[in-house]
């Protein structure tokens, strides 16, 4: 049942407030500018493994941050329009993701105990405690 914790994954302390949402998972990188159609709320780069999938309100679980220094502005705008993901879990964040998380109010965590894209199945229901660096899997 939702709320019961099946297991917990540990990472580095993140940015943002606790959140609960469904995961969208792929072993691929992430750039807000290069990968997303921010008007339609879907992944738009054909080569991306999440191409065509809707990301709004989801916890994106991806490998590493790619280029794209516009991320902070874009997260901020996406949040203002209600078109932001709920959170971003990466194996390796980069500065622009951290800057974007802080400015755009998008939860960010990284540096997990293993490959986070393998530890979390697609569509799993997650609960995040960013300050403690904890990801709780509630349903999978």
């Amino acid at each position: 049942m939702p709320g019961a914790r099946i297991r917990t994954i540990r990472g580095h302390a993140g940015i943002g407030a606790p959140v609960r949402a469904q995961a969208l998972v792929a072993a691929d990188g992430f750039s807000a500018r290069y990968d997303l159609d921010r008007v339609k709320g879907v992944f738009a780069r054909p080569a991306h493994k999440l191409y065509g999938r809707a990301y709004v309100g989801r916890i994106l679980v991806l490998d590493q941050a790619k280029g794209g220094v516009a991320t902070a502005w874009m997260f901020h705008e996406m949040q203002a329009r209600g078109m932001a993901p709920a959170a971003l879990l990466l194996n390796h964040a980069n500065p622009v993701m951290a800057q974007g998380a802080a400015f755009g109010g998008v939860v960010l965590m990284d540096r997990f105990e293993g490959d986070v894209t393998a530890l979390i199945p697609d569509d799993a229901l997650l609960e995040l405690e960013p300050e403690k660096g904890l990801v709780h899997v509630l349903e999978e």
Partner: peptide, 24 residues
């Protein structure tokens, strides 16, 4: 504040910068 300018300044010129993206 641009990935290209950051990597050029670090790599070619020996200056020191992270990606300070957009608002950063």
């Amino acid at each position: 504040g641009d990935t290209g300018s950051t990597i050029y300044c670090n790599g070619v010129l020996g200056a020191r910068s992270n990606f300070e993206g957009g608002v950063a």
